[in-house]
Design a protein around this nucleic acid. Structure first.
Lengths: 193, 193, 193, 193
DNA sequence: AATGAATGAGGATTCATTCAT
DNA sequence: GATGAATGAATCCTCATTCAT
């Protein structure tokens, strides 16, 4: 997840992600990060400008990683439906495989702690934009109802987020079978006629 | 929203909700709450056990209020589809009418700051349980696909949350027309056949 | 010296003045001030906005106090020479009687730690302005050479400062007799002819 | 100013002097010195024992330099008055030509940061001692009043310091003409009769 | 009941100094 | 000799909580 970073940065980012999921942002003190990552506070400040900087770097790294995973095996020559299934399978897959990353993004993507600039950068490298284009294509092909693609993507992503969250909280169990049903539901929900 | 509380408690809860939405949990200090609510810290601690207690009380109050509003005009004699529409209309309506309450619940419902006990209590008085029952009914009537009602409700609520959030962030515009389409989509997504 | 302040503020200001003279600004930490003044850091920050604020308050308090003492017994009806002697006697007197105040002003009146605003306020309440007026009077009466009064006052004050400093450092001994000679020297230095 | 030092030491001393004048001692960090002087912290610590050591070396270098400049063209055969004028002209001249050096000495000559040992060494190579001897000579010749030469020199140096400071702060303007008047004043102030 | 001054542990951050390369 | 990454004690300051009035 943090391949592009050096050893120290990676230790800090991994530790921060872990602690922030266990505890909370306000309980995630620099001294705790230092202790758990076995990197002195001084060194942390050598590699990061501030606590905010760590959080933002974490945010960008996770969004970039997720975007890559989600779009990796999407073949533009395949029919829309196949790509639709694959994209959502990938999003669900990466979310469940990396619950800490998923929860972090969930909790902090609307927080003032994340700079507007980070969000813009994230939008460029994330899966959101390509998926919106896929929806546009489906609308043009008269497959999907004629609504704002952004809106439809948010609607479907919201479903996914809440299902994965509920699964992580053990409120429901999101089996492989359920995942397939859910994607089918999403497909049906926006189908024309 | 806070009718069941006395004057002082109401002032504190209202102020806390306002500040926490403008700023953040960590920037919402007791002294700021005291100053803005014109209640001394001493008095705050007379009516609430701790800062956590205020947050939890807020959580329970909002969930209760929302549950009441959502279920108020639901008539068990009406057909499932009518109740389905009305429920989601109400949920969207109350969320958009009380954005601070909505955002607060969104941000803190998964936070360790909210005690497990508060969440259980919220479940009892919130709209979640009755809506799950409505879905059960629809499944029994062979209207809806045969999946765990909890799962379906989460799925639909996730859609709603993300659309309302996107609207509040001015990322999309959730018009009255769009709301109707969205509810139709939700209905279609779980319809049998 | 700090009559206009309350008990806590006085303890903090007195302690800060003492430490800053013994040590230095950079060695005068808030925790040391707290420990020595027996006021908790929290309380210090209740009465002062910041460390800078303490230093600036100290500055203004000392300048005000010194200004009052210096100008207290100056009678505008007395001849220029009598007032001249009395003013410089007072300045030397208060400087030697309150060496910590004197040294503090000496060390920090040119420091960026003292806000421009504090300096302006100090100028209004200090002895500098009235003494410059006395010099103007002496120049108008053709007693003193025709030079900028500000310049002459600086010149004389510099002498005094260095003599008091040298005395405090035990480099010289500034006896009562020496003081009288020094004032006579200052008088002679600017006398016309 | 730093001819007796090697290239690295010179870079460090020059940079430190510049920064310390712009900012302050506490804002003059080793890392800043390293960055601005383009000498690594490791190298700085190879040539200097500590930060204090740099400051003390700076102090000694400036005092030595100033002493040399002030006494360079003083001819013991000239009459006392000529030497008196020349000495003070030189002191004012070097102070105004090297304001950073002047301000540094001013600020730190009474600071605990400067070791007692540095001050003693400075006394040996500075202009203070020779000028005191000049004053002794004048007293012996019954030219000057019979007071401690050290005291008189401090008195006159104080005047100069305050005038130069006031000029640097743009509080007054110390023209060439004013300088001559000031020296005349100093001369008159200690003249017998 | 109400007040708000007082507390001090804990927060983020800096910086003189060391040391492996 | 030269480098600059690493260290961690110490910095200023905040804030949840208490308690005398």
């Amino acid at each position: 997840m943090f391949e592009r970073y050096n050893k120290v940065q990676r230790a800090v980012l991994e530790t921060t992600l872990r602690i922030i999921n266990q505890k909370e942002l306000q309980a995630t003190s620099m001294s705790l990060i230092a202790k758990e990552s076995k990197v002195s506070t001084g060194s942390i400040y050598h590699y990061f400008q501030s606590k905010e900087d760590i959080i933002n770097e974490l945010y960008k790294a996770i969004v970039t990683f997720t975007g890559d995973v989600v779009m990796k095996d999407i073949d533009a020559n395949q029919p829309v439906q196949a790509r639709f299934r694959r994209v959502w399978e990938n999003i669900i897959g990466v979310s469940m495989k990396h619950p800490e990353g998923f929860q972090f993004i969930e909790q902090y993507s609307f927080s003032p702690y994340i700079y507007e600039e980070s969000k813009l950068e994230a939008y460029k490298v994330g899966w959101c934009n390509p998926v919106e284009k896929l929806y546009s294509e489906a609308i043009e092909q008269k497959l999907f109802i004629d609504m704002e693609p952004k809106l439809l993507v948010q609607m479907h992503y919201g479903s996914i987020v809440y299902l994965v969250k509920a699964d992580l909280q053990k409120y429901i169990e999101l089996t492989e079978d359920a995942v397939q049903h859910v994607i089918t539901s999403a497909w049906k929900s926006v189908l024309r006629s």
